[in-house]
């Protein structure tokens, strides 16, 4: 990107008076309006419910509307948060959540950017399109369906992989009772499912690059590798940083289906599959307490929010153009 962007202010002065400026702001506000109204109604208004996290939520029998229930329920302080720390496995689930997410973010980023660049380099566009279509297939399959597929390989009696190991004279692994291979399996599943999706975001960004920039670089004698390094990657930088920051915000939330369904909810695998979301889900099945689930969600979001603010501040210092806000 050229650094010769003239400040819009210059244009403003040219075009004239304050009314024009105000008119422009007004027009831009009308553009924001539909989205903003939606956000107010469907996102901000329900935030009233966050107080449930601090309440023993009860139904107000005389006139049980939601607001009445809220105003008549007793506050219990941080009691609803306690269940997250009531077990000796709290550390395990936090470690798993943060560890897997960090791994997924870094690996996901590297692989999808690489794939996007590779797809872009394929000479025959038809072939590239075909690859891309096929890559998207996992996104259509739910984790439940994916778990059947994984099971077809790992099943202790009829699994393909297990049979293969047997025929090679190895002692087959009892996959659903052995924690060892699961960090690897889960990571593979995550890449399998999400690469097509995120590669497309990067690919679309690459597509937006002006072809003349490559031509110019090529005429200057830049090798392919140099072109990627000096043209493509700088161009992708904003997208990479933005997606990275947004993923950081979800660092304390896990992909529920991946950790719940793919290991077939097998108990012995909990040490490597238990994450915050699965823990909360299993707790909710028992207590049905909305206060507790709201509390857990609030905590997850709060941690994500702090992480994002930190990441964004750092980015703004180094690379102000790429900051989220």
């Amino acid at each position: 990107m050229s650094k010769t962007i003239t400040k819009p202010a210059k244009a403003m002065k040219k075009s004239g008076t304050m009314t024009a400026k105000r008119k422009k702001t007004l027009m831009l506000l009308t553009m924001v309006a539909p989205g903003a109204i939606w956000l107010i109604l469907l996102r901000y208004l329900p935030m009233v419910g966050i107080v449930m996290a601090f309440q023993d939520y009860k139904i107000y029998t005389k006139d049980p509307t939601f607001l009445n229930n809220l105003t008549h329920s007793a506050f219990v302080g941080l009691k609803n948060f306690k269940f997250l720390f009531a077990t000796s496995d709290t550390w395990v689930m936090i470690r798993n959540t943060l560890g897997y997410n960090a791994l997924f973010i870094v690996l996901g980023l590297v692989i999808s950017v690489t794939f996007a660049i590779m797809l872009n380099e394929i000479t025959h566009k038809f072939v590239a399109k075909t690859y891309q279509t096929l890559m998207f297939f996992p996104y259509f399959l739910s984790w439940v369906v994916a778990s059947y597929f994984v099971q077809a390989f790992l099943d202790p009696t009829r699994g393909l992989l297990v049979n293969l190991m047997e025929s090679w004279g190895m002692t087959p692994i009892d996959f659903y009772n052995d924690c060892g291979p699961w960090p690897f399996i889960l990571t593979l599943c995550n890449i399998w499912k999400n690469t097509g999706y995120s590669a497309i975001l990067y690919l679309a960004a690459i597509t937006g690059i002006d072809a003349s920039q490559y031509e110019a670089a090529s005429i200057d004698g830049a090798s392919k590798w140099q072109q990627i390094k000096y043209v493509t990657l700088p161009h992708l930088k904003t997208m990479i940083i933005i997606l990275f920051i947004m993923n950081i915000g979800k660092i304390f939330c896990a992909d529920f289906g991946l950790f719940f369904n793919v290991p077939l909810q097998s108990g012995p695998l909990y040490p490597v599959t238990q994450v915050v979301d699965t823990y909360v889900y299993r707790a909710m099945m028992t207590t049905q307490n909305y206060g507790m689930s709201t509390a857990a969600g609030l905590l997850q979001n709060l941690i994500g929010f702090i992480c994002i603010m930190v990441a964004n501040t750092i980015v703004r210092k180094i690379e102000p153009d790429s900051a989220l806000f």
């Binding site: 924001v32 996102r43 935030m47 419910g49 966050i50 939601f66 947004m246 929010f305």
Partner: peptide, 22 residues
């Protein structure tokens, strides 16, 4: 407005209140 939309990516009211509004 950037923050206005981004903030909702992280914080929501949860299931019950959203259900009531909708």
């Amino acid at each position: 407005f950037t923050f206005f939309s981004f903030f909702t990516m992280l914080f929501g009211g949860g299931l019950v209140p959203t259900y009531i509004v909708c």
